[in-house]
Nucleic acid binder design. Structure first.
Lengths: 165, 165
DNA sequence: CGCCATTTAGTTGCGCACAACTAAATTGCG
DNA sequence: CGCAATTTAGTTGTGCGCAACTAAATGGCG
């Protein structure tokens, strides 16, 4: 009320709007996660484990480093996750012979077979969303754009000035 | 290849598209979280703690139950989180006199004062996104719609049939 | 060649999310 | 009233995510 910013939006309203956005994303992410949880229960995979398997199914065999790049995850997250996938019998880890620092991950026969069961998952998810594909695609594109922005701005974005540019 | 579904999208492509959507949401959520992390560093708040404080700033005083409803979080998440907020001196917890089961949470003077500093956070976030407010709003609406769908579909959405309706 | 910076995984610690459970208070029904 | 079902927080255990660190291998430079 008492102050109107250069962006034409009062501080208070801005705080409220912000509440909506950050919260919406947070809630959607968790809701999605929940649906995946039930959809993936039969496969004995968590959602992040499923993401890793998707990457491996597509690329066949990757060093941990590459998996991390595809999924934006570091070794702190991936190492234990991959251990669990290995314990479940879905992947194999081997130190690379030509570079002993690197660890190569690839699906086992069982892990590869799992892909057939996984083919049914996306449809169940799409059914759960009940959204037309077109809108889903738009959402995806918006999210990707947002992520790209946030990533470049992230490293202490403290003093970058204008929001409304 | 060998089978084309009723939804006109082959299984394989569907799996790939799915990869994109779920991953996009996951990545965006984490990217957002990262930006908030840096923006909230000065306030000594994590992102979920910030959400709780937003709710408390808006409503003044709430039982744990209500906070959980606003944020879709259960006591398993909230109890330790609120303990930490209490340890930080930002909130107070008191068992309700008229219903001893309930615990009432309200900001301390320090917690209330924190709001002033927090007013700057949304603008920093908006700056980091670099998106026009209109597009942000659209994104928010899409996400809310998605969450609503997912929530109703969630309880074992196994055999709900058609995605493309 | 020898040494230091870099790269790559892994480990530790902390916080969130969620399922499954416990504990205590309250409600309601016979 | 008395007891079972419900409501409300809290606890425990597991897994993800990230920061900060360690350990080992590699690459490059004097």
């Amino acid at each position: 009320m008492e102050k109107t910013t250069l962006t034409t939006v009062p501080d208070e309203d801005f705080l409220r709007l912000d509440n909506q956005i950050c919260f919406s994303l947070h809630a959607a992410s968790r809701a999605f996660n929940g649906v995946y949880r039930t959809a993936l229960k039969d496969l004995n995979l968590t959602y992040p484990q499923y993401l890793v398997m998707l990457v491996l199914w597509e690329h066949g065999e990757l060093p941990v480093k590459r998996i991390g790049e595809y999924l934006r995850l570091d070794s702190g997250t991936l190492s234990p996750l991959l251990k669990r996938l290995e314990a479940a019998g879905y992947v194999e880890r081997r130190r690379s012979p030509e570079d002993e620092r690197s660890v190569t991950v690839r699906p086992t026969a069982e892990g590869a077979a799992l892909r057939e069961q996984a083919l049914d998952v996306p449809r169940r998810i799409a059914a759960a969303t009940g959204m037309p594909l077109e809108r889903i695609r738009r959402l995806r594109d918006d999210l990707n754009a947002l992520t790209a922005r946030l990533d470049t701005a992230d490293p202490d974005a403290a003093d970058c000035a204008a929001a409304d540019g």
